[in-house]
Amino acid sequence: MAILEVTNLKVYFPIKAGIFNRTVDYVRAVDGVSFVLEEGKTYGLVGESGSGKTTTGRAIIGLEKVTEGKIVFQGKDITKKRARTRELNRNMQMIFQDPYSSLNPKKRVLDIVAEPLRNYEHLSKKQEKMRVQELLELVGLSPESILKYPHEFSGGQRQRIGIARAIALKPKLIIADEPVSALDVSVQAQVLNFMKDIQKELGLTYLFISHDLGIVKHMCDEIAIMYKGRHVEQGTKEDIFERPQHIYTKRLVAAIPEINPRHREKQFQFRKEVEKEYDAAYDDYFNKDGLAYQLQKISDTHLVALPEKG
């Protein structure tokens, strides 16, 4: 069942210029994307920096004004801020990229994790403390940590505090914006494992935003590749990694470092060929503004932004 349906979403930011600071143009951060998240699955959103991934996530959770399009969450249209009921809001949470700046340094862990609880549930101090301790235990932190401050934790631990806060209200959908990009490999492993564990336990759906294809491949069932505010390709993990169709996706996949040193010459060669193909076919795959065309279905699961002429 679809938990989230995004249809033709556009988020434009005005560019002001001139002496009177009038709006002369727009940054088309998200420029008409549509996708569907199935309940209990992990949906990956990949693209280079500036492609509009964060803005997509923020628009879905209501932190960014939607210019055009429609967002349907649990069957309700939540495009307009007013339509977001408290119940819907609590079912959707976000995990942010930087575990160092996303936690208020002046607040204790107890207050950080309890904040959503205080907004939505009327618990006694004692109940609240118990809930927070449970949550901390769930994310693998000792329950005694509740009186500590964020700076007393390592990066991975902080990210888990952020996760504890996000799952405090037992949400249905978590938007994770580059949750491990700021972390070391070993810590990354810890957070990723943990996200998989709680997904099973709580039946979570993830919108997993990342620019690291290795991690996306590890985490996601379905993937969308984003470029300049548009999706160039959507499909299952296998569609994207084994049968990439769009030249941009091919180039992205080819850029992943090859972990087997014996294969590296082959990989370089392959990358060169893809690069050549990319240069040669660029004009076929992008319109005169360098933007991708409409997505077209090439199989049940696989959509590619192919030129309209066909």
Partner: peptide
């Protein structure tokens, strides 16, 4: 070995976590 085992690789569901920091 721990480092190599903590990066995602083909057919691996869970990643190895190096304990501590």
């Amino acid at each position: 070995r721990s480092l190599l085992n903590s990066v995602p690789a083909e057919g691996q569901d869970r990643l190895h976590v190096i304990q501590g920091i």
